[in-house]
Design a protein around this nucleic acid. Sequence first.
RNA 1: GGAGAAAUGGCCGAGUGGUCGAAGGCGCGCGCCUGGAAAGUGCGUAUACUCCAAAAGAGUAUCAAGGGUUCGAAUCCCUUUUUCUCCGCCA
Length: 438
Amino acid sequence: MRLKKIRIMLNIKTIENNRDYVVSRLTVKGFDAAGIVDEIIETEGTRRKKQIELEALFAEQNRVAKDAGARIGILKKEGKHEEAETVKQNAAEESAKFKTKSEELETEVACLEKQVYDRLILLPNLPHESVPAGKSAENNLVVKESGTIPELNSGQPHWELAAKYGLIDFEAGNKLTGAGFPVYTGKGAKLQRALISMFLDHNIEKGYTEVQPPLMINADSGFGTGQLPDKEGQMYHVVADDFYLIPTAEVPVTNLYRNVIVAESGLPVKLTAYTPCFRREAGSYGKDVRGLNRLHQFDKVEIVQITRPELSYGALDGMVAHVEELVRKLELPYRILRLCGGDISFHSALTYDFEVYSAAQARWLEVSSVSNFESFQANRLKLRYKTAQKKTEILHTLNGSSLALPRIVAALLENNQTDRGIIMPEALVPYTGFDIIS
RNA sequence: GGAGAAAUGGCCGAGUGGUCGAAGGCGCGCGCCUGGAAAGUGCGUAUACUCCAAAAGAGUAUCAAGGGUUCGAAUCCCUUUUUCUCCGCCA
């Protein structure tokens, strides 16, 4: 007998038991869920009823087959083949009574199941209570601002500085691939490597284990962390083998724990990974894509944590503090935002963004995004843990950038430019091997 | 890329159409034995979902994944994936 397992994406139970709460929370994200939620609850109710009926039919069929099987086994051993044949035919007849009905029900259940599933994946994660209301980035809440914004007399933007000092060749990237794929050269290349090493060391020091994951993932992984199906167009798709280029290390690293039941003693899981990230960024334009501001390929060091549900917000605070420390080491003026409902991502419950000030462009640039996904990803991933009492419980996943390189480089170049050249922050010098770019 | 072999529970490993959700062993848990331990010995040891107020109990599904044949599939057939051996290619 075959019955497809229901793929629990989100907790249907949560939706059923807290219908109004779910709907009202999702309005914070500007999402009108009432219709979908009601459909889910209704369809799921029907599905469950049919499912119970179906299982009862299967039980009958199994009973018939098992009884017959037991008798046939004995008869055959005794060499009574004719009697065995009779038992066989009786079983076939008896079973036929249930067959038609169960096949019909089976189709029906599969259909209902798909209906529920199709609607379930449309629902974003519920935002945390502290997520401010608001439609766009303007409504994000600045929770902290720190550092001094340098006063430049004749500040050049980073793309000019990059050309002046021979750090980045955007033209060459255009030739090799296309816009958004820069070529780093000389001290520019070394600076990349230095930042990556510094960031990784900082994370390792704080108990994160370094991982080097694949840069391509399959569809299951894309689904597990929520890139699929709703963000399909943002990933590069390798058609010949049906792989996707990772948009962030979060995807392969978190998916290490897809379909895993972790022992409670193994928690929290803390991983860090450096990878290039590939994003199609369809629909971007203007000053947002100038220079390093928005690229199709960029470098990022990521941190991922997996914790027990009751500890996830403590872990989120810890990660924010951790990233803040790193930004301070770079001596960049920064601010921390709590994203409002309209700006927070589909799968996040609470997100803090870090922005550094880019002096020559006179604007804030996002360099890190630290989020708690609560059980949203874990549900998709089927990521759970065993309690000391041997109960299986869902986990929470979190991740953050620590840090994304391009805009850090942009800010470093712009903010630290002097007549003599670009001064490196002290903490970075052991990694670059030079203290000034001139 | 070609040819062959294989995939079984936490691990090892038996099982080629029927009393099989799966022998046996290891590991693990709880007892007994012991002054204590080891050895020995007894019992128990997968996951998900559902029914039930809950417990007890029961049902369904799962032997790489998906599909098929059959009254009945770990076992037969098809597809896919992965692993091993040989050949080819290669950093």
